[in-house]
Amino acid sequence: MANVEETVLTYWAACESRDWARMGALLADDVVYHLPQSRERIRGRDAYLQFNREYPGRWRFSVTRVTGAGARVASWITATSDAEELPAVTFFDLDEAGLISVITEFWPEPYEPPPGREHLVERYPAATARSA
């Protein structure tokens, strides 16, 4: 099995460059993509690639952290468009051939913290969070 972290870094580089052939080469035929927050699931390489090709807007991706062991990898990225910047956490499972077989992605919405913990926390700008 190839280095799982390198596989995910290559995946994000393919997303960034919109190189769908390169991305497709990393995916199992029966890859499953989960979006728990919207309760959506996409099954199969072709459908997942089409989903990405047709996604609206021009997004840029920067990788903050990738870590993995065995056949599992997690990544923390920031996706940026003209209008917004969103952090995301993505979990990848790879099959025996080293291909990505399951992707589970969380796109948390930024929010203001509730009052009452100001004495315990330090606030920082969003851009600083990426260098943590």
Rank of each mutant, 00 (worst) to 15 (best):
A2V: 11
A2Q: 14
A2E: 11
E5G: 06
T7D: 07
T7K: 11
V8G: 07
L9Y: 06
T10Y: 00
Y11W: 10
Y11E: 06
W12F: 08
C15F: 12
R18K: 11
R18Y: 10
W20P: 02
R22V: 14
M23V: 06
G24Y: 00
G24E: 01
A25Q: 08
A25T: 06
L26R: 07
A28Y: 02
A28D: 04
D29N: 06
D30Y: 01
D30L: 03
D30M: 02
D30C: 03
V31W: 02
S38C: 08
R41T: 15
I42T: 10
G44Q: 01
G44T: 02
R45I: 00
A47W: 06
Y48Q: 06
F51V: 01
Y55D: 04
G57L: 02
R58G: 15
R58M: 12
F61M: 05
V63I: 11
R65W: 11
V66R: 07
G68C: 05
G70R: 03
A71V: 09
A71Y: 07
A74C: 13
T78E: 14
T80E: 09
S81G: 06
A88V: 11
V89P: 06
T90C: 15
F91L: 14
F91H: 12
L94R: 05
D95M: 02
S101T: 12
W107S: 12
P108F: 01
E109S: 13
E112L: 09
E112Y: 02
P113E: 02
P114K: 10
P114N: 11
P114Y: 11
R117E: 08
L120D: 02
V121E: 03
P125V: 05
P125S: 05
P125K: 04
P125E: 03
A126D: 10
A126L: 12
T128S: 12
T128R: 15
R130W: 13
R130E: 13
S131E: 15
S131Y: 14
A132Q: 14
A132C: 12
